[in-house]
């Protein structure tokens, strides 16, 4: 297995290697909160990072499977396209921001704006998420096994939010919706696929009331 030690190798060297057609498995040690580790990969490589990472780790990931052994700084897996990113610890704000595909699994908690502007990614958080999560979320699923902070799903479009615990104040145009059998099954599959132990029946679903889709003077108070 190819190994990079960020005490001696630079992030630049690591990323260049990852961009130049790597394959198989790769380990990264001593990340020490460095930024932009393993971003922009477009290869089916397995990357295992042993420790905490700074901003934008795994940004814009395509096809790679990345595991972060510690906590992640802001914007982890931002704009992820495909593949998967798993965080063993907690994630800072804007985890999975504008993600367009693939899967982001956070085994701990996620901070504010988790899934902000998401556009198709599936995000599964075993813990809780902070305020303004799924803000302007367009597509994809945000699953929260713990609690969700205030203004959940503010100005949400067609993304789907599932929360098992308590939900603070809902954001503008976000409402609780019926949890149909199809939703339960879909969620079950996602939980199994991501290896997060939770019962899909225990979740509630939230989504868009679609009242802000076209301007209506009678909804001016919601703007």
């Amino acid at each position: 297995m190819k190994a990079f030690d960020l005490n001696t190798d630079s992030v630049r060297e690591l990323n260049q290697y990852l961009h130049d057609s790597p394959s198989g498995k790769l380990s990264v040690t001593n990340p020490a909160g460095r930024h932009c580790i393993a971003c922009g990969i477009d290869n089916a490589v397995e990357v295992s990072i042993d420790g905490h990472v700074g901003y934008y780790c795994a940004g814009m990931n395509k096809t790679a499977q990345i595991t972060i052994g510690g906590n992640a700084g802001p914007g982890v897996a931002e704009n992820i396209m495909s593949g998967s990113v798993r965080i063993k610890g907690n994630a800072s704000q804007s985890a999975g921001a504008s993600g367009r595909g693939g899967t982001l699994i956070i085994e701990g908690d996620a901070s504010a704006r988790c899934g902000i502007s998401m556009k198709g990614v599936d995000i599964v958080v075993a813990g809780s998420v902070g305020h303004l999560s799924a803000f302007m979320a367009q597509k994809g699923r945000l699953v929260v096994c713990g609690d969700a902070g205030d203004f959940l799903g503010d100005s949400i479009y067609e993304a789907c939010i599932y929360v098992r615990g308590k939900v603070g104040e809902l954001g503008a145009d976000c409402i609780e919706k019926e949890m149909t059998a199809a939703h339960v099954h879909g969620l079950e599959d996602l939980l199994v696929a991501t290896g997060v132990a939770a019962n899909a029946d225990d979740f509630r679903r939230y989504g868009s009331a679609r009242k802000l889709y076209n301007f209506d003077i009678d909804h001016a108070d919601d703007y």
Partner: peptide
């Protein structure tokens, strides 16, 4: 969605440079 002030932006730019190999 993923940065707020100029300090964050500096790191965002670093990310874009990394993705495009500078």
């Amino acid at each position: 969605p993923d940065w707020t002030g100029p300090d964050d932006l500096a790191i965002k730019i670093q990310e874009l440079r990394e993705i495009t190999d500078w």
